[in-house]
Computed example of a mutant assay.
Amino acid sequence: MSEDSLVPGGPGRRRHRLSDAETEQRMLRTATEMVNRSGLTVSLEHISFEDIIRDAGVARSAVYRRWQYKDQFFSDLLKELARGSSPAIGTDNRAAVETVRRTILDHLDWLSDPGLRCALVAEVLRRGTLEEFETLHESAEWRTYLALHATFLSLPDGELRREIRSALTESEGALIARLADAYKRAAGLLGLRLRPELNASFATLARLTSATIRGLVIMAPSNVGIGDHRTQARPFGTPNAAEWSEPALGVAGLVESFLEPDPDIEWDEERTEALRHALNSEDWLST
């Protein structure tokens, strides 16, 4: 490949030579797209440096002028991946959100009974958690996010480790904040509150449920039954027995231990209609 970038459709015609900054941008963008397609492993050995150069459409000499050694490029790539890592979870999973919405609409008659409000949360999680688990399990983006954390732990102390820690801390904070906001919004709509004796926040609940799902996703390759096993059960005050997956039991157990009916809320037809109206809006989980 020549030093210059060719003009599409014009054999032999050339445009200006790419600057080092443009070369860097193209290389990192192309490598990020490759990782997002296949997922990041704990190493980057499955990503070919020469393939990145080819797909980025940049000159090898320009690349090696910017990065004398491949390890230097892959260090910059790790930082780029960490800065851009904010995988979809909870409210970003449209299928899971729709499952939650549909389940609540199907059980509006449960809400007038404080005990059944908690049972409705359990039913929502029974249906929605497995869908969330399966989405994350199949997501290359999530594999990359989890591998970045594992890679960070293996890095020696130094600037690269500090930069990746900072980027992951920022993305993790944003992820937990989104999930906590969704929990708070849903609890308010359903007339529930955090148990005061726990002195906990929705962010605490979000961290714990997120950790549970992630742990199960990590375990899944060597524990095939995690996603497939079902048990007929009637936990958490649900009125009817139903099939429960292990992810649903784990997450529902956490959520049910944190939430209780809000004693200050009197459920009536007006509140039911307000909830129905809220559920029919596209941003019903947004605060």
Rank of each mutant, 00 (worst) to 15 (best):
Ala147Gly: 07
Cys118Thr: 10
Glu24Thr: 13
Leu105Glu: 10
Leu160Cys: 05
Met34Asn: 00
Glu246His: 14
Val97Asn: 07
Asp157Glu: 15
Phe152Val: 06
Gly237Lys: 01
Gly227Tyr: 03
Leu259Thr: 00
Pro8His: 07
Thr32Glu: 11
Val217Pro: 00
Leu111Ala: 01
Trp142Pro: 06
Asp228Gly: 14
Asp109Thr: 08
Arg83Leu: 02
Phe133Gln: 05
Thr209Tyr: 05
Arg230Lys: 06
Arg234Met: 13
Thr103Leu: 04
Glu45Arg: 14
Ser171Glu: 05
Val217His: 00
Thr41Asn: 12
Val217Ala: 00
Asp4Phe: 13
Trp267His: 06
Thr151Met: 09
Asn280Asp: 06
Arg127Asn: 05
Leu259Val: 05
Thr32Ile: 09
Pro263Val: 07
Gly253Gln: 07
Tyr69Thr: 12
Gly10Met: 15
Asp268Thr: 09
Thr30Met: 11
Ser210Gln: 14
Ala140Ile: 02
Ala241Glu: 14
Gly9Ser: 11
Tyr145Asp: 10
Leu77Pro: 01
Thr23Met: 09
Leu18Asp: 13
Pro196Gly: 08
Leu275Thr: 04
Ser154Phe: 03
Arg234Phe: 11
Thr99Lys: 11
Ile89Gln: 12
Val97Trp: 01
Glu260Thr: 12
Val42Asp: 08
Thr209Ile: 12
Met219Glu: 13
Gly158Ile: 06
Arg60Asp: 09
Phe74Arg: 04
Leu6Ile: 10
Phe74Tyr: 11
Leu18Gly: 08
Arg15Cys: 12
Asn199Arg: 15
Asp71Val: 14
Phe258Gln: 00
Pro247Asn: 04
Gly128Ile: 03
Pro261Trp: 04
Ser222Gly: 13
Ala274Pro: 05
Ala203Val: 12
Lys70Arg: 11
Ala95Val: 13
Leu136Asn: 01
Gly90Met: 04
Ser61Gln: 11
Asp228Glu: 15
His107Glu: 01
Arg13Tyr: 14
Ala248Tyr: 00
Ala206Asp: 03
Trp244Lys: 01
Arg117Gly: 01
His277Thr: 11
Phe133Arg: 04
Gly250Thr: 12
Leu175Thr: 12
Leu120Pro: 01
His107Arg: 11
Ala147Leu: 07
Ser86Asn: 15
Leu259Trp: 02
Thr287Cys: 12
Trp110Phe: 10
Thr238Cys: 15
Pro196Asn: 06
Phe202Gln: 00
Leu77Gln: 07
Arg15Trp: 13
Leu18Trp: 08
Ala274Val: 06
Glu260Phe: 05
Arg271Leu: 11
Arg271Tyr: 08
Ala182Gln: 01
Ile89Pro: 02
Asp268Gly: 11
Glu282Trp: 00
Arg214Leu: 07
Val63Ile: 12
Tyr145Gly: 04
Arg178Trp: 05
Val42Trp: 06
Val224Arg: 15
Ala242Lys: 09
Asn280Trp: 00
Gln232Tyr: 13
Ser112Pro: 08
Glu282Arg: 04
Ala233Met: 12
Glu24Asp: 15
Tyr69Ala: 14
Ser257Leu: 01
Glu266Leu: 14
Lys70Ile: 01
Arg94Pro: 09
Pro196Glu: 03
Ala147His: 00
Leu105Ser: 09
Asp4Glu: 14
Ser5Tyr: 09
Val121His: 03
Arg165Asp: 15
Pro8Asp: 10
Pro261Asn: 01
Gly158Val: 04
Leu192Asn: 06
